[in-house]
Structures are given as C-alpha cells and as structure tokens.
C-alpha cells in the first residue's frame, strides 16, 4: 500500500470521526448529567460499573476528561476491537453519556484553599509522602499522585481521604502472609494466583511468595491509608490539601 493511500485512509477516518461528532453539542448542565447517568446505567454500567469506575471494562472516571468529544463519541458508537461492542445510542443519548462521564473524572476543579499550605500539610504535617510519590519524591505503598489533579475529580479525592477503604486501586489491596516460620508479613498485593503472591511489604520490599511455602494468605478489608475524619483533618485543611493535589497535573 502506498504512503498516499495510507494518508488518504487516515484522513477519511479522521473526517468521519469528526463528522460523526460534529453535531454533538455537550450540554453539561446538572439535568443533562443526570440524564446521562440514566443512559450510562442502562447501557454501559454492566461492564464499567454503576459509577464508571470499571469492573469488566475500563475505569472511565479517569479517562473521559482526557479524551475529546469526537474520540468518545467514536468509541461509544463503534466499540473497540472484539471486546467493547458498538452501541445503538442516539446522538442525544451519546451526548448525555459524555456529559455524565466528564462529570466523573478529572481534572479536579478546586477554587478554594491555599495550595502552598496544602503542600506543607501533605509533606510535613500529615506526611502523605511516606506512602505517596509526587514527581519522584515519596513512597510507593500508595498510588503515585504526580498527575492526580488531572486524573481524579474533587469528590473522588475527598472520598479517598475521608474513607479510603471504599475504593482501593488495583495493585494496592492490603494483604498479609503468615510464613512457615510464623512471621506475619503485611503489604500491598501486586499480583496473586492460586500458586503465588507478589507483594510490596510495608517496608517497601518486594516479596515473592509461593503458596506452598506459606501457611496462610489473608486479604484485609481496611486500606493501609489512614481514615482522616474531620477531627483528624479539618475541612479547612482538606481544602488546602485538595488545592495542592488539584494542581498536580
């Protein structure tokens, strides 16, 4: 195939992709977002979960903010490969779903609080950096937050601070292992199957266990991230913290 024909095909694809979405105006009013939630629940939530955070399908809460309307409309109408089916949604339904998806994820919009004070709270007072890394500085037991402001919504971040066990990201599920010698090793689960377990222990050592070499493996319900109630972290401090996190992009 010639270079010209490849370019022509690419142009055609782009043309049709943009043509398909050219008429799509995204109304982001609360009513439209609510309507989008209903369409999403009926047509998308079987795979992407009721809140869009993914189950069989991808976590869309981080994705939608980073894709154009044309890209989203194209995927919704045509599907992806052999796994995500095309849908028969009307243009209005598609527009509503995109409005809903945009309401889920980042970028986090935080207009109150003091980012500099929040940075100080993050690193010094609450020492979040013991477990979380930002731009190469910090720990590894929790998710890397270098771009968290671009990826997560304000409501998501508040939930992670106030009740972190509600949603634990894959690769950070708490687990404990009792070795043959009786030692208990706790950490976050990187991977597990019926025969082995890969863990980052609380001292950040990578530990690879064979199931036949350990006495017991327990999944823990509570995240290693502490719960910060209003008594432990005031709303004012949280505002400052969120302002700092929202600026991490």
């Amino acid at each position: 195939m010639t270079r010209f024909s490849l370019a022509a095909i690419a142009s055609l694809i782009l043309f049709f992709a943009s043509a398909a979405s050219a008429q799509l105006a995204i109304d982001d009013s609360p009513a439209a977002v609510e309507a989008g939630l209903r369409v999403f629940r009926s047509h998308c939530s079987r795979c992407h979960d009721l809140n869009g955070q993914g189950y069989r399908g991808r976590d869309l809460s981080q994705l939608a903010g980073r894709k154009t309307t044309a890209q989203l409309a194209n995927v919704i109408s045509r599907g992806i490969g052999a796994e995500m089916p095309a849908t028969s949604l009307t243009p209005q339904q598609t527009s509503r779903v995109i409005a809903y998806l945009r309401s889920l994820g980042g970028p986090a919009i935080v207009e109150t609080g003091d980012a500099r004070r929040g940075e100080n709270l993050f690193w010094n007072q609450y020492r979040c950096g013991r477990c979380h890394m930002v731009a190469g500085r910090g720990g590894r037991l929790g998710p890397d937050l270098t771009h968290v402001g671009a990826a997560r919504s304000k409501s998501f971040l508040i939930r992670e601070v106030r009740s972190p066990s509600d949603y634990i990201s894959k690769g950070f599920e708490p687990v404990s292992v009792v070795t043959e010698s009786g030692e208990t090793v706790s950490g976050v689960r990187k991977n597990e199957d019926a025969f082995s377990l890969q863990m980052l222990d609380v001292s950040e050592n990578l530990r690879n266990f064979l199931r036949e070499e350990v006495r017991d493996v327990k999944r823990l319900d509570e995240s290693f991230m502490p719960v910060y109630t209003r008594n432990q972290l005031s709303d004012a401090d949280l505002d400052d913290l969120l302002r700092y996190l929202a600026a991490l992009r």
């Binding site: 629940r41 009926s42 047509h43 939530s45 079987r46 979960d49 009721l50 809140n51 849908t87 028969s88 949604l89």
Partner: peptide
C-alpha cells in the same frame, strides 16, 4: 437497545 431495568455493583 439494551433492556436491563437495573444493574448491580
């Protein structure tokens, strides 16, 4: 169109 009338988490 899909006709579920609900879903689960």
């Amino acid at each position: 169109q899909s006709y579920w009338g609900g879903n689960t988490t």
